[in-house]
Amino acid sequence: MSQEALQRSTAPRVGGAPRVEAAHATSTRRGVEVRGLTKQFDDGYIYRDFDLDLRDGEFVSVFGPNGCGKSTLINMISGMAPMDAGSVQFNGKPIAETRLSYVFQNYRDALFPWMRAIGNIQYPLKLLHLDRKSRDRRVESLLAEFDIRIDLHRYPYELSGGQQQTISILRALITDPEILFLDEPFSALDYEMTLFMRERLQHVFMKRRNTMVFVSHDLEEAVQLADRVLLLTRPPTRVAEIVPVDLPWPRDAKTLSNPDFVAIKSHCLDVFSREVARGQ
C-alpha cells in the first residue's frame, strides 16, 4: 500500500455513514460476503457451504455455543486460517487485498515484549515502510483522537492488563483498517476493566465507523456493542439468527438495565439455549 493511500485513508470522515445507507448497499460497498465456506476438522464438518453477509461499517458480534467455531470463522474470514473451500470478499475485492487488523484475546502473547508500547503501536507502520517522522505523527494523532494516557515508553509487561489490551487495539487501529477483527479481546480482564474497555471500543467505533467483527463468549457484551448479533448453531455451524440491536449509541453501563436491551438480550439467550439443547 502506498503512503499516499494511507494518508488519504486517514482523512477524517464526516460523521459516520448513516445506518440507512449501509442497508442500501451499493455495488462497491457490499461489506463482507462469505460464500460456500467449508471447513472440515478430524471429527467432521465445522462449516459446510456457509454463507454470510456483513454490512460495511457495521459492528457485528459473533456469539454461539462452545465449539461452534467462532474464532475459526473470523480467522478464516480474515485470511489467517485456511479454509477448505469458499470465498470471502470485502466490498467486492478479495479479503487479501483489504486493509484489516486483528486483536487477539491474549494480549500478553500478541504484543511484542521486546518493544516498548510505542514500538508495538508503530510496528505495523514499519512494515509499510513509513519513515520515522510520519510514524511519530500518526501515533500522535491516534493518541490525541482517543485521549490515551498511558506511558508509551514502558514495556508491555510493565503495564496493566487493560493498558496492554489498549495498546493492542491502538496497534490494530494505526493502519486505519477497513475492517477490524476482535477475538474475545476483553475476556482476560476483570469486570470493571471490561466495562471501561467496552466504552473505549464504542468510542473508537463511533469515530471510525469501520467494520467490526467481534467474537464474544459474553452475551451482555455481545449485545451491548453490536449493530447486529450473529448467533451461530452447533457444528456443522449455520446462522441461527441475526438479531438487530436498535439502541442509541453510546451504550454505557446504564444501557445494561434498559428494558429494550434486556428484551434483546433475553431473545438472544432463548435462541442460544434452543441451539445448545438441539445438539444434545
Binding site: 489467517m80 487488523s101 486483528y102 487477539f104 491474549n106 505495523p124 493502519t175
Partner: peptide
C-alpha cells in the same frame, strides 16, 4: 515459540 505473535505479525502483513 508462541504462535500468537507470529500470527499477529502475519496479520499486519509481515
Amino acid at each position: 515459540a508462541r504462535k500468537t505473535r507470529i500470527l499477529a505479525a502475519r496479520s499486519m502483513g509481515a
